[in-house]
Amino acid sequence: MLIEALKEQITALELGRGERLVLPLGLPAIDDALQGGLDLGAMHELVGPAAVFFAQVMMRLKGGTVFWLATENLNEEYYPPGLLQYDGQPERFIMVRPQDVRDVLKVAYEVLASNTAGSVLLEVQKPITQTGMRKLQIAVQNTDTLGLVLNPNYARNIPFGYEALHSSAVTRWHVGISDWTAEKTQIDLHLIKNRRGSPCRWTVEIDHATYHLHLASVSGE
């Protein structure tokens, strides 16, 4: 009991505020592993071939304005019809595309600290350094913004665990698609890093009509 209370205090100190705001994903197994849900006012990392999809699931749950920050030379663009299919709101999407990676981080600090965005999705070519990540974490604390960092190499066939695991993000997810039908998408969700508990792995199904998450199977701890 005492340990639990102390843990709470430590997380509160880490996040720089008294109470912890969470975004439940609506799946008890995952929410328990995260001690209630995804931390708001914190940074989360996403890697893997279906990272964009899972980011959309998170951003849909969060609601509000979405800021997408990426450099101008990235060949990818969000596609409004595709967003609509996953219950996204294209009119709530604001894209900021500076030329320079440094500027992307600069924008990220501004947007995160302003506390006007529902979620902020940050995409940079190289993994963010530990200092950079810590700065983002400091900018986002005390807000209720969901901070997401996406590795742009997500769609390539690169085994996970490739990048350094020691960043100051609160969670790190590896997401891949294991099956797809017209009714539902099945994804492999691997919580590689979890500051609220131990790493876990699930296979989750997402219903295309309701966007609810269902557990297909739990595999290992």
Binding site: N75, E76, Y78, Y79, P81, G82, L84
Partner: peptide, 16 residues
């Protein structure tokens, strides 16, 4: 603005 939901599956991200 009004957006029309596509009838067939479309990608979330498009390559420029």
């Amino acid at each position: 603005q009004s957006w029309n939901r596509p009838a067939v599956k479309r990608p979330i991200r498009l390559l420029k």
